[in-house]
Design a protein around this nucleic acid. Structure first.
Length: 500
RNA sequence: GGGCCCAUAGUCUAGAGGUUAGGACUCCGCUCUUUCAAGGCGGCAGCGCGGGUUCGAUUCCCGCUGGGCCUACCA
């Protein structure tokens, strides 16, 4: 039997959790869960200037929200703790020493400025801007001279000069790479921190990672990683490089393309199951025609053999569509938990509504959910449920509210509805249709002006059902007020709100 | 510049040496309904180009083109 699968998501905490990283995390997690393996979270905070605590929190929060739980990680520990690289410096020291002793690593005294300068010159000459390996064979005297200048050395790994390194990729097959193309790279910065290339290799090995699943932007990095592993005598993990996520202009997805933090999608009312579903479909497919899947359904079907090589464009429209589908499938409780804070934020609801109010909001959601694509639209499309301060859209004004007969129709509706003893859907529908009949007009001629008056718009859920959810007196009051506004010509100008 | 990766409609994708190239989003039309922003039905639209291999390639190979990524004391 094969060794148990162990994968990791290893983000650097230098900002919010990007959807591209969420995508990588998801694929690792799905792979682990499908195969009953272990999913490890490791924080790669070796960029000592850009790493922040807030970013670590954002990563935890983002992953938890998406539903990705980890079996080992900084917060919960595990057999290979710590899982934060800045706390593993002693481990790395030990490993530099091995390389230094075996001659595969050496001290380099070149300053970043000097290196940059030389790269510029090489570029200007049309040469590859790689390091010239000049510190490889420093004499003791030269080293002493640099030290005397007060220079602090970095440690470089001695790459192979000849031959080729073959990357064996589960998704792409074998990819040979010419060794002579890459210069020796820094593995320990002057600051004492490791570079990514070094810590990733050491930790993946020490943490028994069996599969490294990451973005294709890491393909060429794999070459030094492989050489490092070989120098240490580590058995390399299996690699799988995923196609990148791109913006509509087909460049790597970035903030230029709009929202790239996972959190932004949460704020606009995307459900976590939507993001998992949508992200899973970017670069992976089920093989059958089903696309709307639960997380469990994805775990069940997921495997690397159905992952495609090509990069994929993040299509926001499709993401919204999938969200609409999941909104219909979601529990009312979940939708309420998302909607209530949004409504409160918009000033349409108290931050902690009473139990009765919550039930009522739930009824509003149930009425609207079939046509919503994000929960966020509730504060817009559903505004009239929560406040009298809603606008009258141009279509509503033009089609109904400016019509000379509308004022009388609305008054008649107000009167008929006011007289109702029971405020039920059936009673409301009966009254509205009755008014139409008495006035000798079709049902629509009563229904549409009524909707326009009470909601300010021409579209929405069943009129009778939405009226029922509004307080009896509110509906009657709005009808009377709008009738007045019609007579006063208030709808000739754009955008009045009720009573203006 | 160099290296590497990728290539089925605008987008996400399925697919096989011979298929009417399948599904989904978007868009358009029709339809149901009190309205659509929902539902139903239908439609537009695709194998990047050029060579091979083959009886036959969109599928396999090569080249080209296009796009992407990497080329840091960032990860």
């Amino acid at each position: 039997m094969a060794d148990p699968i162990r994968v990791r998501f290893a983000p650097s905490p230098t900002g919010s959790l990007h959807v591209g990283h969420a995508h990588t995390a998801l694929f690792n997690w799905l792979f682990a869960r499908h195969h009953g393996g272990t999913f490890i979270l490791r924080i790669e905070d070796t960029d000592e200037v850009r790493s922040t605590e807030e970013s670590v929190s954002a990563i935890y929060e983002g992953l938890r929200w998406l539903g990705l739980d980890w079996d080992e990680g900084p917060d919960i520990g595990g057999p290979h703790a710590p899982y934060i690289q800045s706390e593993r410096l002693d481990v790395y020291e030990e490993h530099y020493r091995k390389l230094l002793e075996s001659g595969r690593a050496y001290y380099c005294y070149c300053s970043p400025e000097e290196l940059e300068e030389r790269r510029e010159i090489m570029r200007a000459r049309g040469l590859p801007p790689r390091y010239d390996n000049r510190c490889r064979s420093l004499s003791d005297a030269q080293r002493a001279a640099f030290e005397a200048e007060g220079r602090k050395p970095a440690v470089r790994f001695r790459m192979k000069d000849h031959g080729s390194t073959v990357i064996r990729d589960l998704i792409r097959g074998d990819m040979p790479y010419d060794n002579s193309l890459i210069g020796d790279l820094i593995i320990r910065k002057t600051s004492g921190f490791p570079t990514y290339h070094f810590s990733v290799v050491v930790d993946d090995h020490l943490m028994d990672v069996t599969h490294v699943i990451r973005g294709e932007d890491h393909i060429s990095n794999t070459v030094p990683h492989l050489q490092l592993m070989e120098a240490f005598g580590f058995e390399p993990p299996r690699h799988a490089h995923l196609g990148l996520l791109m913006g509509p202009d087909r460049t790597k997805l970035s903030s230029r393309h709009g929202a790239t933090d996972l959190a932004a999608y949460r704020r606009m009312g995307m459900l976590p199951q939507t993001m998992a579903n949508f992200l899973a479909l970017l670069g992976w497919s089920t093989g059958d025609d089903e696309e709307i899947l639960s997380i469990g359904g994805i775990v069940e079907r997921f495997d690397l053999d159905r992952v495609s090589k090509a990069p994929s464009v993040f299509d926001f429209g499709k993401c919204e569509f999938i969200n609409g589908q999941h909104i219909r499938l979601a529990s009312l409780e979940q939708l309420l938990d998302i909607a209530v804070p949004m409504l409160a934020e918009a000033g349409l609801l108290e931050a902690t509504p009473s139990a009765d109010d919550r039930v009522w909001v739930g009824r509003v959601i149930d009425l609207m959910r079939d046509r919503m694509r994000t929960v966020g639209v509730l504060t817009d499309w559903g505004r009239y449920f929560f406040t009298d301060e809603y606008e009258f859209e141009e279509r509503a004004r033009e089609k109904w509210l400016r019509k000379p007969e509308t004022a009388d129709t609305l008054d008649a509706l107000a009167e008929a509805l006011e007289a109702l003893p029971d405020w039920t859907v059936e009673a409301i529908e009966g009254a509205v249709r009755n008014v139409a009949e008495q006035r000798g007009i079709g049902g629509g001629k009563a229904i549409h002006p009524c909707r326009a008056a009470v909601t300010g718009t021409t579209v929405g859920p069943s009129l009778f059902h939405l009226l029922e959810l509004l307080p009896h007196a509110t509906v009657v009051g709005r009808l009377r007020l709008v009738a007045e506004m019609c007579r006063a010509g208030a709808f000739d100008e754009p955008g009045p709100t009720l009573g203006e």
